[in-house]
């Protein structure tokens, strides 16, 4: 079993503090959902875990099986087993999806032990088939000209090919129609199990109809303010966030605006 621990994490962007002491522990074989209104720092948490260059961790810790993640470069974090399905994946012209994926897989293997092209293609075809992606998407340039839904599906394709220990999914459900949402969920559910842990960030309970989380956390004003089981998500869906604000005495006046 692997563990990802986030301890009292404070994160700023351009000297503005967004995260104000986040605590969270994930184990493999667990699916966590983080919910919360816009601008409460959910995406900032995702970016800080992966090491986005614009976010500055001012204090706190992120540990992966006791190793200090914050000292690692972005690629080292990925090699250590972290994955972030991004809300806005970059488009990279001239680099085919397949070539990119093969580079990502080979980056995890020793020189001279690269994955055979046949084996790679077989695995890619199978996974794309599972995600109902047309074969030509392997030869298209990485995310270039992809629709919003295609980009999300492509993030899940990468997740399934790379097989990380922990995946953070940043609003993987945004902009998806119901059919695409089902396929993306199918991919995530396929990954579930021993050796895989997941942190899903979402505004909407809708995603959780397809992926039942083991734990649900609510973030407000840069902190995790409430945690519970999947029933918490259902209550949020039914009643919104006001009851939590009331319960905790949170006022909206100083809500954080930034949500990259």
């Amino acid at each position: 079993m692997s563990t990802l621990e986030i301890k009292d994490l404070h994160v700023s962007i351009e000297d503005k503090e967004i995260l104000k002491g986040v605590n969270l522990t994930l184990n493999t074989n667990e699916v966590h959902a983080i919910m919360g209104p816009n601008g409460t720092g959910k995406s900032t948490l995702a970016s800080a875990i992966m090491g986005h260059p614009k976010y500055e961790v001012t204090s706190g810790e992120i540990l992966l099986d006791g190793e200090n993640v914050l000292e690692m470069e972005v690629d080292e974090r990925a090699q250590a087993g972290l994955f972030l399905a991004m809300q806005y994946p970059s488009e990279i012209a001239g680099v085919t999806n397949a070539d990119f994926l093969r580079s990502a897989i080979n980056a995890r293997r020793e020189e001279g032990d690269e994955i055979s092209i046949m084996k790679f293609i077989k695995q890619l075809d199978k996974t794309m088939d599972f995600l109902e992606m047309p074969e030509e998407m392997g030869q298209r340039y990485l995310n270039e000209g992809f629709s919003g839904g295609e980009k999300k599906r492509n993030e899940i394709l990468q997740l399934m090919m790379i097989k990380p220990k922990f995946a953070v999914l940043d609003e993987i459900d945004s902009g998806l129609d119901i059919d695409a949402l089902k396929i993306v969920s199918k991919g995530i559910n396929e990954m579930r199990g021993e050796g895989f842990g997941c942190l899903m960030i979402t505004h909407y309970q809708r995603l959780l109809n397809y992926i039942t989380p083991d734990h649900v956390h609510v973030m407000m004003q840069g902190k995790v303010v409430k945690s519970g089981g999947s029933e918490l998500a259902q209550r949020l869906e039914a009643e919104g966030y006001d009851w939590i604000k009331e319960e905790l005495g949170i006022k909206d006046t100083n809500a954080v605006v930034e949500e990259a």
Partner: peptide, 13 residues
């Protein structure tokens, strides 16, 4: 941002 994206998949800078 492109570098960050690729590196987040384990590819070196």
């Amino acid at each position: 941002m492109q570098l960050y994206y690729l590196m987040s998949r384990g590819i070196s800078r």
